[in-house]
Amino acid sequence: MQTAFGVPPTHHSDHVAMTFAPLSIEEVYALADDPANGAVVVMSGMVRNQTDGKPVVALEYQAYEPMAIEVFKQIAAQIRQTWTDVTRVVIHHRTGKLSIGEISVLVAVGCPHRSEAFAACQYAIDTLKHNAPIWKKEHWQDGSTSWVSIGACEQPGENC
């Protein structure tokens, strides 16, 4: 369990998943739905057709799935400590080879008010990108491939 870092158990209404199958915005939205909500913010991340102007044809996601799930649970738990009005936290991430436009990640947060929902959703996706043990390899149009390093994503002006 999470006791080593003092993280409480997953809230019963939160939902986290790593999946090889395509992600569903409808499913994630439904999981975030709650009568106490005044707002649901959904963050959808998908495969972009270029990196720094260089054409990309696909992204291949690899994950250490059991640890990624633990990180997602810790993100949800931290959200509940920071924004106590949050009703639902949903984090779904895909693995495998995805083509342009396919959704790689969905985060949904339900709250009584929009400002907390926006803040918590941004915290979730930013923390996921920095900490979840997930890697992506860019498949370039010229047939070559390379693992993405978030070090590059932290340079000013980068937009990963």
Binding site: H93, K129, I134, W135, S149, I150
Partner: peptide
């Protein structure tokens, strides 16, 4: 044990 090179999820 897991060795975690720079991650790039999302």
């Amino acid at each position: 044990v897991v060795l975690i090179p720079p991650v790039s999820g999302g």
